[in-house]
Simulated scan of single mutants.
Amino acid sequence: MMRVITLAIASWVCAGGMAMADPLLGTWQTEPDDGAFAHVAIAPCGANFCGTIERTFKEGAEYTSPNRGKTLVIDMAPQGDGKYTGQVWRPSNGKIYRGKIALDGDRMRLSGCVAGGLLCSTQTWARVN
Rank of each mutant, 00 (worst) to 15 (best):
M1I: 08
M2I: 12
M2Q: 12
V4Q: 13
I5W: 11
I9T: 13
A10M: 13
S11N: 04
C14F: 14
A15I: 13
G17Q: 10
A19L: 11
M20C: 07
M20W: 08
L24Y: 01
L24N: 01
L25A: 06
L25C: 02
G26M: 04
G26D: 04
Q29C: 00
Q29S: 11
T30Y: 03
E31R: 01
P32T: 10
D33G: 01
D33C: 00
D34C: 06
D34R: 12
G35W: 00
G35Q: 01
G35P: 01
A36Y: 00
A36G: 04
F37N: 11
A38R: 07
H39P: 03
I42R: 04
A43H: 07
A43L: 08
P44A: 13
P44N: 12
P44D: 10
G46Q: 03
A47K: 12
A47N: 12
N48M: 07
N48V: 06
N48Q: 08
N48I: 05
N48K: 08
N48R: 10
F49N: 03
C50G: 13
G51V: 09
E54N: 02
E54M: 06
R55A: 11
T56L: 10
K58F: 10
K58W: 07
K58N: 09
K58I: 10
G60P: 10
G60H: 06
G60D: 13
T64E: 14
T64D: 14
S65P: 06
P66W: 01
R68H: 02
G69H: 08
K70M: 11
T71R: 15
L72F: 07
D75N: 14
M76H: 01
P78G: 04
Y84P: 01
Y84S: 00
T85A: 15
G86I: 02
G86R: 02
G86A: 05
G86F: 03
G86E: 03
V88E: 02
V88Y: 00
W89Q: 07
R90F: 00
P91G: 09
P91V: 08
S92Q: 07
N93K: 01
G94V: 03
I96N: 12
Y97E: 05
Y97F: 15
R98I: 02
G99M: 11
K100R: 15
K100E: 15
I101V: 15
A102Q: 15
A102P: 02
L103I: 07
D104R: 02
D106K: 09
D106C: 04
D106F: 04
R109F: 08
L110I: 15
S111G: 09
S111D: 13
S111H: 04
S111N: 06
G112Q: 06
V114E: 04
G116C: 08
G116D: 08
G116Q: 07
G117D: 12
C120N: 10
T124I: 14
T124H: 05
T124N: 05
W125F: 06
V128G: 00
N129I: 03
N129M: 07
